[in-house]
Amino acid sequence: MKTSVIRSLLATAFAGALTLSAAPITPTFTTFGPLPGATFGGSGIPNHAVAITTYDGVTLGLTAHQRYSNPPVGNNGAGDFYAVKDGDTYSGTNSNPAFARWNFAFYALNTNSSHMYLDLLYDFDPRAGTDESAHGRLSVLLPSVSKAQDAWQDSWNLGMAFLSAQASGTNFVLTPPSGSFNPNIPGEYTFALVLRDKDDVEVARTAIRVNVLPDSGATAILLALSVAGLAGLRRRH
C-alpha cells in the first residue's frame, strides 16, 4: 500500500477521535503497583507505582516521577501523585528552568493480533477539573508486537517544546492544548492513555492525576506519601 494511502487512512482514523469527553479526567486503572517490564525509555526510572490497565492483550501504564535529582514524587497508592512546583534547576548540565521538576511516563504494549489506536492526553491547565476536551492529544497507531521491549514507552516533561506544537506523521497526530505550561504554578495536571478499536470506540483507559504543591516545604509530605504508598503495595502483594 502506498505511503500516501496509509497517511490518508490514518488521518481518517485519527479524525474520528477528535471528539473528547467534556468531563474531567480522574484516576482510572485496573491495578496500581509495579510494572516490571517498563523502563519508560530510560534507566533507573521508578516503575513500582504505576496505574495499570489491561485489555485483551494490551497493557497500559502511567506514572509520574522526579526529574533527575529533583524532589521525589509521592503518591497515595490510588492514582494521585504529588510533586513540587518550580522549574528544574537541580539537574546540573541537564537542568532546564522551563521544565517541571517532575516527569510523566507512559507504557503501552499491544500483544493482540491486530493493531489498535491510542490517545495520550496531557494537561497544561493548573486549574482543577480540566475538561478532557481541553487536553493535548497525541494519537498513535499501536501495532501488535510480541516482545515487551517493543512496547511504546517514554518519560516526558510538560515543558518539552514538541508538546506545544501541532504535528503529524505516518503513524501519529499531535494536537497541543491551548495556552502553555508554566512549571512555577502549583495546581492539578491530569493524564490518560485511551485505547480505541478499529471503529474508534474507546475500549479501555488508564489515567492519573499529578498534584503540584506550592513550595519546597512539601518535600517531607512527598516522602511520607512515598513511604505510605510502598507500605500499601507490600500489603497488597
Rank of each mutant, 00 (worst) to 15 (best):
E188S: 10
T93G: 13
N70M: 01
F191A: 07
A22K: 14
Y90T: 14
L174I: 07
A15N: 15
V212H: 07
S146Y: 06
A38G: 05
A83E: 11
A23F: 06
A204H: 05
P97K: 14
V145E: 05
L195R: 08
Q149V: 14
L142T: 06
D123L: 05
S113L: 06
G179V: 08
G61E: 05
Q166K: 15
S21N: 08
T12L: 05
R209V: 06
L225T: 03
L18P: 03
T63A: 10
K85A: 12
E202K: 15
L60H: 01
R67E: 06
S69F: 01
G179P: 10
P126C: 04
A17E: 14
L20Y: 13
A167K: 06
G87T: 10
I185K: 13
N171K: 12
R7S: 01
A134I: 06
T190V: 07
A148G: 06
T12I: 01
I208E: 04
A218D: 09
N110V: 09
L18V: 12
Q66F: 02
A17I: 12
L138F: 01
T59Q: 04
N103C: 03
N171F: 09
L10D: 13
S155E: 03
A218K: 12
T206R: 00
I45M: 04
G44E: 04
V73L: 04
P72A: 01
V201I: 14
T190K: 02
F32Q: 12
